[in-house]
Computed example of a mutant assay.
Amino acid sequence: MVQVSAGAADSGDPPRSGRVRYIRDDIVPSAQRMVLGRALSARRTLLGLKQGEVARLLGASVSKVSRIESGQHQFKAQDLARLFTIYRIVDPAEQAELRQLAEEANRQPWWQPWSAVAQKHLQAVVSFEEIAQRIRVYEPLHLPGLLQTEGYARAVITNGTTQSSHQQALIDLRMERQRRFEMADEDKKLICVLDEGALRRRYGTPQIMHRQLEHLIELAASPRYVIRLAELDRYDLPVYIGSTTIWEFAARILPDIAYSENFDGGLIIQDEEQTDARKKVFDRLRQASLSPQRTVQRLKDLASSRYYR
């Protein structure tokens, strides 16, 4: 199910930048398709065309044009060629650039082998995660997936509602996401606020938790990870932000996108005001949390006092 907030395209008017979607089990936006859709939307806006006008010239529905621009529709060569005519794109270099974007958008993603077991909102997360340059994340109930050891991931996944036959595949997907994050451009960063309550909530055996804390200490030594801890006994931290991920993209190929996950789906927020508000609250939480150096010391204390071997 995809729910779109008021203000989305209907009578031929272009969608507002403020789209909020709750994704559960329907077609989801792909980051790669959104890059091309954003470029086409910008061209349409420059020409002063409404989606309804483009739909009529394209011989399609307004819904199709909206889905193309929002990254929910696979691009076809004939549609792109007709859009070149409608949008007066005659420069061979510009056409070649858009065809390249279309090729990337239609290319089978690396996570395709997991598509049968990964929920639709998880596939969207992996899509944005892949091309984001900077990721900010706070999870109040457990550690973010990019920080989990295999043992901790297994404990989290098997404790959830996932079918037992799918559990190992999802663990493998999580480990592959981590590997690809590590192999990405060195400028790619994860800025994470850990919740001390999540660290005190045990997933798996004490040995699994001890190894997880050791792993966090190891990651904290890498410039790719900025890890801070929100103390459990601090009453004034803005933890009400809840589960939050914010993706930021290089060269502004996409505007910043916020994401909040819950029991059976995820909320993707593209509204600039709402995303900016979440960024500000996240930064307040980050600044009020322990420094990276004090976070490492707290992790060591927890490992020795609570989850000692």
Rank of each mutant, 00 (worst) to 15 (best):
A6D: 14
A8F: 14
D10H: 13
S11K: 13
P15F: 08
R16Q: 12
G18H: 05
R19P: 01
Y22T: 07
R24T: 15
R24L: 10
I27F: 07
I27E: 13
V28Q: 12
P29G: 10
S30L: 07
Q32F: 03
R33C: 02
L36A: 08
G37L: 09
A39W: 02
S41E: 13
A42N: 11
T45P: 00
G48S: 10
L49I: 05
Q51D: 14
G52M: 10
R56Y: 07
A60R: 14
A60W: 03
S61L: 06
S61A: 11
V62H: 06
K64F: 08
K64M: 15
S66F: 11
I68N: 03
G71H: 06
Q72L: 14
K76A: 09
L80T: 04
L80M: 06
A81W: 00
R82K: 15
R82Q: 15
L83C: 02
I89N: 04
V90T: 15
D91Y: 01
Q95T: 05
E103R: 11
A105N: 01
A105I: 01
N106I: 01
P109F: 01
P109T: 03
P109G: 04
W111K: 08
W111V: 08
A116I: 00
A118W: 01
Q119H: 06
K120E: 14
L122M: 15
Q123N: 03
A124E: 12
F128K: 03
A132R: 02
Q133W: 07
Q133K: 10
R134S: 12
V137G: 01
E139H: 13
L141Y: 14
G145Y: 07
G145F: 06
L147S: 06
L147E: 05
E150N: 02
A153Y: 02
R154F: 04
A155T: 04
V156N: 02
I157E: 08
T158K: 13
S164Q: 14
I171Y: 07
D172H: 06
Q178L: 04
R179W: 04
D185L: 04
E186V: 07
E186W: 08
L190V: 10
L190F: 08
I191V: 15
G197W: 04
G197F: 06
L199K: 03
R202W: 12
R202N: 01
Y203C: 00
P206Q: 10
R211Y: 00
Q212N: 08
E214D: 15
H215V: 06
I217Q: 11
A221R: 12
P223E: 11
P223I: 09
R224S: 12
Y225M: 07
R228L: 00
A230G: 07
D233A: 10
Y235G: 01
Y235V: 12
L237S: 06
I241T: 06
G242R: 12
G242T: 03
S243C: 09
T244L: 15
T245C: 02
A251I: 00
A251C: 04
R252N: 15
I253H: 02
P255A: 11
I257T: 13
A258P: 05
Q270R: 12
E272T: 07
T275I: 09
T275R: 04
T275Y: 05
D276F: 12
K279N: 05
K280M: 13
R286S: 12
S289M: 06
L290N: 05
S291A: 08
P292E: 07
P292I: 07
T295C: 08
T295Y: 03
V296S: 01
D301N: 05
R306C: 11
Y308P: 05
R309D: 15
